[in-house]
């Protein structure tokens, strides 16, 4: 029974997400929409098996929500900070540069989420990831205090991502 479930539904979370996307696109929960969406998302999830995706797990949705809240606040703050830097007439004494940060997080989906967070907050760009040493190279627009950025990435995001994905 378990084996059959696993074959029919290899990625339950992915299937549910695809179905939710389908229902959102159609803006309807009519039976026909649900059935067609269900069949399509089952088929899409089944073809994902061919890609041989890395395994992973996802736990503690409550932590995910608090992380989402944190990131939204950080997006607001960093938009404001970068807008100020751009509009400052002289560009006043700002140092930008590269920063290499050693990570403890290794889960592939955790790293992908971290990349989305880093990209979604203006002022930080993910440049490269070194798999062997597990470090990331970021470029930071306003690199006044390196330690502050390391604390933000490791303390604010990485610990929560490790709770979620490891």
């Amino acid at each position: 029974m378990r084996g059959l479930m696993r074959r029919l539904l290899p990625y339950p979370l992915m299937t549910a997400t695809l179905l939710a996307v389908w229902l959102l696109l159609n803006e309807s929960v009519a039976p026909g929409t649900v059935i067609l969406g269900g069949v399509l998302s089952l088929a899409a999830a089944a073809t994902l098996g061919v890609l041989d995706l890395p395994g992973g797990r996802f736990r503690r949705p409550a932590v995910a929500l608090s992380l989402l809240g944190l990131v939204l606040v950080d997006i607001l703050r960093s938009n404001w900070a970068v807008a100020k830097i751009i509009l400052r007439p002289d560009g006043g004494g700002r140092v930008s540069g590269f920063l290499r940060i050693p990570l403890d997080l290794r889960a592939p989906y955790g790293l992908a989420t971290l990349a989305c967070i880093v990209t979604a907050t203006p002022g930080t760009v993910w440049v490269a990831y070194d798999r062997r040493r597990n470090t990331i190279l970021l470029h930071i627009l306003d690199l006044v205090d390196e330690q502050e950025w390391i604390d933000t990435i490791k303390g604010r995001y990485e610990t929560r991502l490790m709770e979620l994905f490891e």
Binding site: L76, N79, A83, I86, A120, T121, P122, V125, L141
Partner: peptide
């Protein structure tokens, strides 16, 4: 590369 992210986020 940092600047246009203002438009693509907030």
């Amino acid at each position: 590369v940092h600047a246009p992210t203002l438009g693509s986020t907030l």
